[in-house]
Nucleic acid binder design. Sequence first.
DNA 1: CCTAGTGTTACATTTTACTATTACACTATA
DNA 2: TATAGTGTAATAGTAAAATGTAACACTAGG
Lengths: 123, 123
Amino acid sequence: MKFDDKIPIYYQIKNYIYRQIIVGELAPGDKLPAVRQLAVNLTVNVNTVQRALGELISEKIIEPQRGKGNFVTEDQGTIEKLKKLLITQQLQELYENLHQLNVTDTEIVSYLQDYIAKRKQVQ
Amino acid sequence: MKFDDKIPIYYQIKNYIYRQIIVGELAPGDKLPAVRQLAVNLTVNVNTVQRALGELISEKIIEPQRGKGNFVTEDQGTIEKLKKLLITQQLQELYENLHQLNVTDTEIVSYLQDYIAKRKQVQ
DNA sequence: CCTAGTGTTACATTTTACTATTACACTATA
DNA sequence: TATAGTGTAATAGTAAAATGTAACACTAGG
């Protein structure tokens, strides 16, 4: 996996697992790959994987079972809330960053529409 | 100044100066605060400021004059290009991150509109 | 010429993320 | 009960960002 060298790897792994859970690649109750396997897949160290998982455990997104593995929470509400939170965070980041560049509300929307339209042309 | 501890400080300083130039707080030809003064203002080390300025110099956004100071480029075109680049980068980041969460093009736009509408209510 | 203000650079040190390695604890199963 | 698969944790080492400090080079003005 390719990482952004401006952001801690453990943090990018955390978001990677967030995404898998939200899109259903990892369904509620599913067992995650073993930490050593994840480390190999992502070409990072076990401790780095563990640091990411540790935060997911604190947030009750996954539940560890010693000797068995890590499992996605069965609580669908938690996952729904997570998805909404992540979306809102993304929107907030865009909004604040563009406002700091003196872009107005209406411009933000129209710029986004232009951007999406341009993407479609290319594809 | 408050920094995000997930992103290098020098990088955040670079973006901070980008913003000041784009919104005109620093106009073309303006002299930036002295590096030691910037270090005090931002409560960071001179070398950290210098690292941020070094990249801005490489990008021709500012021009150093030894013994005098650092000056914003007089080339308005460079600044315009920079603004467009930053906006596009922000849009791309939002787009890709939300798509990874299985959010469709139309949903992205409507979520953004909702977000802006909600912000207005609060204010 | 001297001094204050400026950019530039170098060095040692500290901090943190990450790695490599090893060990320990628990579970399931042959 | 032995073994393989799992999570958990500790230790030591490396790399990069950031700091503290100092020195050097250039400019302007008295």
